[in-house]
């Protein structure tokens, strides 16, 4: 169990709703759900959710902490915002799903090989280095994430698209060596640091 997780379990004991309220982005909305299920029905990826949003909200209220945090359901969200638009209680469901995913990830409970999570991690790590996304490194990283052989296969499959992108100057092969960045890399780093601090204090990670 990660330290952060152990600390959360100790602090909130059975009150998972409280934990979500305090620690998850927009988590204070979970209590407002009235179980109509319109979010679950509106989701274009709905059939892929083991537990749709409304059910997750109920599981949170019922204290099913492990089931929720280890679930891959909230990783299914593609931010289409259908659920937010339709929710009769105006819950920011998309944001709550991302908040829950982020929280599970932070506690080390998120499912390890969940592809959305893997991609998101790669994307984030790629981004924060220079303040800009390096498309080539990101694509290659994705091609080879399941091993070298599969990576070659993926690269060959995507060859036409890659060349097209290169022709349209959307992909620069030299990015592999250095790549472009934003003007004030230090500033970006400082900004991210500050954001982490604010998040930690607001979401009670510090205590």
């Amino acid at each position: 169990m990660s330290d952060l997780n152990a600390q959360a379990v100790a602090k909130y004991r059975t009150n998972f709703l409280k934990e979500v309220e305090e620690r998850v982005e927009e988590g204070e909305w979970v209590k407002m759900c009235m179980q109509c299920g319109v979010c679950s029905g509106s989701c274009p990826l709905g059939p892929f959710w083991a537990h749709p949003p409304q059910e997750i909200f109920m599981m949170i209220r019922a204290g099913r902490r492990d089931e929720v945090l280890t679930s891959d359901s909230m990783w299914m969200c593609t931010s289409c915002y259908n659920c937010i638009v339709r929710c009769p209680r105006k819950l920011p469901i998309t944001h709550i799903m991302h908040g829950l995913a982020n929280y599970a990830h932070r506690l080390g409970l998120a499912p390890k090989n969940q592809p959305t999570r893997v991609f998101a991690t790669m994307f984030w790590n790629n981004l924060i280095k220079t303040g800009r996304v390096n498309e080539l490194k990101l694509s290659l990283g994705l091609y080879f994430k399941d091993g070298f052989k599969q990576g070659i296969q993926n690269a060959l499959n995507m060859q036409k698209t890659g060349l097209g992108l290169m022709k349209a100057k959307r992909l620069n092969p030299f990015e592999l060596f250095s790549g472009h960045g934003c003007k004030d890399r230090k500033g970006i780093a400082a900004m991210l640091k500050k954001a982490r601090e604010i998040e930690a204090s607001r979401k009670h990670f510090a205590n």
Partner: peptide
């Protein structure tokens, strides 16, 4: 849960106060 009319606002208010409603 049967809160007709503006009772719906009362229901929402209770949820805001973190009363848990379980079907």
């Amino acid at each position: 849960l049967r809160t007709p009319g503006n009772g719906e606002d009362f229901y929402r208010s209770a949820q805001r106060k973190e009363v848990t409603f379980t079907k």
